[in-house]
Every structure is written in C-alpha cells, then in structure tokens.
Design a binder for these strands. Structure first.
Lengths: 192, 192
DNA sequence: CAAATTTTGTACCCACAGTTCAAGAATTGA
DNA sequence: TCAATTCTTGAACTGTGGGTACAAAATTTG
C-alpha cells in the first residue's frame, strides 16, 4: 500500500554516517545531508524525523560495521600478539590513509556529545564495552597459550588496550606521520 | 589614553576557556560567551576580534595552565613509577570530579577541530609533543634509576603513555565510574 | 480504474549565529 | 576645558540552521 521509497534508506544512513564522521554532529547541516543523500529535504525529514534521529541511526550503522570490524579482526586465528599487532596496524593504516583523517566516529562522538546527548553517549559506551571485552578475551586466550604472563590481570590489560586504541585513533586525527603511532603499537606489544 | 577596559582580559579568556571546554567550539555561541564574560557583545568583538581568535587564546591559556600542570607533576621528585601513577590518578580524579565531565580541552579540540582549524590543530599537536616528551624523559630517568628495563625504547614508551593518557581522558568523558579508568592505570604501571 | 497512501520537492518560517556599527562614556594630554 | 583616543553598550543586519506545510505526483490494493 502506498508509494514505495525512491531511495534506499540503508544507503542514505550510510551517506549520513560519512558526513557526520567527517564534520561532526554540530557542524553538519541539513543542507549537507540533503546534498550527500541526494534527496529532498522533505524526504529526509519524512524518512528520519530529525537530524538527531538520523545521527543515532548513523551511529548504530557505525557500530555494526566499522566498530564490529575491529572485534572480528581480533577473533581470527594465529598468535595473540600477532593478531593484536596486525589489528592495531590496520587501524593506523586506515586512519592515516583516510584523506579526511576522520579517526573513529565513536571517539569523536564521545568528545563532542558526551553530557549533552544521552542516546549517543550510551551507544558509544556500549561500543567501548564491547571492544574492551574483545581485548580482554584476546589477552585471556594469550594467557592460556602462554603468550602473556598469567599473573597479570587480563581485565586490566583489556582496559589498557581500549585506552590505547582510543588514544591511537584520537592521535591519528592530528598526527603528522606514522612514526608516533607506530611507536605506540611497538611499545604496546612489547609490554605484554 | 582612551577609556580603560572595564574587564580583565585574562579573566575573560579564562571564562571563555571554561565555556569552550564545556560546550566545544561549534556549540559555543557568542551569546554564551557574552553571558559568561559579563560584557557586551561589542566589547567582546572589540577586544578579541572573533569567536575563533578568542578560541585560540583560550587554547593557549589551557596549554600554559592545565596542560603544563601535568608536565610539572611528572617532574617532581620520588620514584618514577610513583610519580607516574600519582599523575594519572590525579588526572582521573579531576576528570571524574568535574560535574561537567569535560575531559581534556586539547583532546576534545583534536576530535572536533582537526582538519578544519589549522591553528587549533597545531596548538594541540604541540601540547601532545610536549607531553610525550615529558613522559619520555620520565621513562629515561626510570631507566637510569633501574626502575624501568633499560632494553626498552624510552621514546616508544613515551608515545605509548601519551596515547594512554589521551585515551584515559577521552574515556573519562563517558565513564560511568572509576573502575575502568583505575584498571587502565594499574595495567599501565604494571607494564613498565 | 478508483481509492487510499505515501513520497517528493519547493516554499516558507522563526530563531539565532556571528558580526558590525553608531552613539555615548571614560580617560589622557594640551 | 577641549580634543583625541579608546572603550562600552545595545541595536541592527545578514545569512543560515533546523524544521514544517503543502500540493502535486507516484504506487499499491481491491
């Protein structure tokens, strides 16, 4: 019943996510979104209700795509240290390879929207929780395999790795080259 | 000659810094600044020229005050690990004690303004450089004192500590309690 | 084909961001 | 005291942010 949408909502959310990622929430205007999505303002508000609602959908999409990708990487096979190093290296490579240097949308959102946007903050918190959990699981696996000293607190190391990854992606936003970021990875692996 | 200013420019920049810190750059309006500074709009623009110019002055003030404070802390006396732990703990304590949970202005600015604000980005870069240098110097001191393994690359550990501190302050913006942040500190000290 | 729904894009709206300006007030020097 | 100078205040201005209203058009169901 009724006329079907002329555009793919998923593709539209994807485009919106790209814009929010590049410009941040406050600096993104409805006009930016209309331009990027290639639909009229009326369609945009009819389909998504508000700028903020669209932002939330963009965050969810980010979580299910980008944020999940890191976790998947960590759950592959191979030596624990190798997997961790590879994952962090890929992160740095992607960040520095991005001409817009957008870093991580979750990190940027935490910085910009914490305390004023409960929905966004909660989504970001959950993403951080999951990432920390994946790091912790990896460390526990490393301990079982004898790659990581069993005496250390796997949960604490998981938190530490989360902080490092978050710091890495924030630093990537202003980094002039790969050197500092590479050093972070080296020292991180070396400290396990 | 001429009518003297009715307000203290330093105090005004301090107030502006507090507002930018709490709300971010884009979300801070001239009206917010006028309210916080207690002066008229005309005076504001007469004294500082533009919102952006005032933001730069606020960042410089942050660098000379807040950012320098951490570096000073690291240069005190005592065991290297104790100093590092104390400094990180103080950071977490301040962040969680702040009712607005503003985190670090340099970190927030990197997230919000990188790639669109060269002056701000450059200021933030320099702050990160200095902090990294202070961490590195601390590690080198620890190596001379036999507190830190001499075989490890002090520069890399310095970078790693910078990433950790940055991540810590970003996480503080969305943290629900001190647990995760405390674990980060424990694992960090434990890894030296 | 008719009826019912939904989409679309344009036009429109109000508030406010960011800035400028004119008029007046305080100061110093002559 | 006048002139020159620098500051203050608040009104005014321009552009845009974020969103709504609407009429026309497009599809689906029956």
């Amino acid at each position: 019943m009724g006329r079907p949408k002329q555009f793919d909502p998923d593709a539209a959310v994807e485009q919106a996510m790209q814009v929010f990622w590049r410009k941040g929430y406050a600096a993104t205007t409805p006009q930016d979104l209309v331009d990027a999505l290639g639909i009229g303002k009326g369609s945009l508000y009819n389909a998504f209700g508000s700028k903020h609602a669209l932002f939330e959908r963009a965050l969810v999409r980010y979580r299910d795509g980008q944020a999940q990708a890191l976790i998947d990487l960590l759950e592959q096979s191979g030596s624990v240290k190798d997997r961790l190093r590879d994952a962090l290296r890929l992160l740095v490579e992607l960040d520095l390879g991005d001409p817009d240097r957008r870093g991580c949308l979750a990190v940027n959102t935490a910085a910009e929207r914490a305390m004023t946007d409960e929905a966004a903050t909660e989504l970001v918190r959950r993403m951080f929780d999951r990432t920390e959990g994946a790091f912790r699981a990896l460390i526990e696996e490393g301990q079982r395999a004898g790659e990581v000293a069993s005496g250390r607190d796997a949960r604490a190391i998981g938190s530490q790795l989360l902080a490092t990854a978050v710091g890495l992606r924030l630093l990537a936003r202003v980094a002039e080259g790969p050197d500092r970021l590479s050093r972070v990875i080296d020292a991180t692996i070396d400290s396990l």
